[in-house]
Design a binder for these strands. Structure first.
Lengths: 235, 235
DNA sequence: TAGTGGTCTAGACCACATA
DNA sequence: ATGTGGTCTAGACCACTAT
């Protein structure tokens, strides 16, 4: 029965704009002649299909996942993907520091144990809602005066490309989807352990003999983004 | 409250073997002094973390996702990944035919409209449970007498490698996670639209000038597999 | 101070798998 | 036939967000 209700709502939702508010659960239940729990089950089904977002105290809203394609050729532009979906991206740098990176980062960046890297944390917003964050490790030798050049909203790729002329290319990447680890769930203010997408990626400088420039670990809400890996092995 | 229950159970489950059966909901509810719905909510939480699998009429069982890594170097061996997790893989070929492929397949395989390819459908099992299936399109010119050589359980990669000596390498791949389309849900006997992983991949023959050999579209249950893409761009 | 979704109760019946 | 998870009811209170 809740599946029938869900199908009905799904069909109606298909024509609605993102952000439209659905009727509250009790109204929906009365309208359809079912109990509130049944109406809830239907809405949960829609939520599992990423067709709605639910916010306690606020309401149920029509939603669509945002396509984020990871490929060889396209620059890894998160902001462009969000804009492409007709939404408004924002990036805020939350912290800066010069620090020794952990071993895995050292290995991936091919640097020795004495080197320090620039650690940058950035939060990602879509339409003013926090939907992800990223921790980056950057090589300060390749990026003199970075704090001055990286404004809060710019894409890292654009800065490496246009300001430093490093011809940034993707050197390595990893993608997996997992239940949100506690610290990630806390940072994104999620309850429980909803699925999140972990993207690890390294950018190399083609203009400097493919020397690694930066390594980023980013976390994105899996209900907001549809990450699509599309990769040609032989260009 | 159900989150507390879930944490308690999660801690106990951590030490248990895959496949162990948990107490039924009503027993659990009585033991913990909560209503059955609360016990259910806790079990649903564990299910969303992939720690248990629930089967109507049968019970709730301890589970772990199976790691399936897609990388440049490793051959794309699904069976090896399953065995590596201490589980038993099986593949069953369900259909065979010579047919004209759809446009997207033609484009990816770089063949003209007149060519026919071998279409093979295979079901994938883990411990005798259906967990995915794959539709492959193979080039019969590169694979003479294939129907005789491909036994029901062999990995396609192994056959291309050992029997035909084609030096198979991954030519292209795409990965995304989506709510199961109706026909996929039906095939895998899933209710609703639970998330499934779609993997599209093309194998090329390094021994034949990297000519495309086969294109496979496979669907895997996202609650059973943890697909991990780990890709070096510059080998 | 509403109004929203989130949780919980007790009880009932159903669908499905297994023996 | 039994036992399991799946669904549904009616009603209550709570947590959170917005006004």
């Amino acid at each position: 029965m809740y599946l029938v209700v869900a199908e009905t709502l799904a069909a109606q939702i298909a024509d609605m704009h993102v952000g439209t508010r659905l009727p509250p659960e009790d109204k929906l239940a009365r309208q359809l002649g079912v109990s509130r729990l049944t109406a809830r089950a239907a809405l949960a089904e829609l939520e599992s299909r990423y067709l709605v977002l639910r916010r306690q105290g606020s309401g149920t809203f029509v939603s669509r996942r945002i396509d984020y394609t990871i490929s060889r050729d396209n620059p890894p532009s998160w902001s462009a993907s969000v804009r492409n979906a007709g939404r408004t991206p924002a990036i805020r740098t939350t912290s800066w520091r010069l620090d020794k990176p952990p071993v895995e980062v050292r290995r991936r960046m091919r640097i020795d144990a004495r080197r320090q890297l620039l650690a940058v944390s950035r939060d990602r917003y879509v339409d003013d809602e926090l939907v992800g964050f990223a921790d980056s490790w950057l090589d300060p030798e390749l990026l003199p005066d970075l704090p001055q050049t990286l404004d809060t909203t710019a894409s890292l790729h654009d800065v490496l490309d246009r300001h430093y002329r490093l011809e940034p290319v993707r050197g390595w990447f990893g993608v997996a989807i997992d239940p949100a680890p506690p610290e990630v769930a806390r940072h994104l203010r999620l309850h429980g352990h909803p699925p999140v997408i972990a993207i690890r990626s390294r950018t190399d400088a083609a203009a400097r003999g493919h020397r690694p420039v930066e390594l980023t670990i980013s976390w994105l809400r899996a209900d907001i983004f549809r990450v699509d890996v599309d990769f040609d092995t032989n260009p």
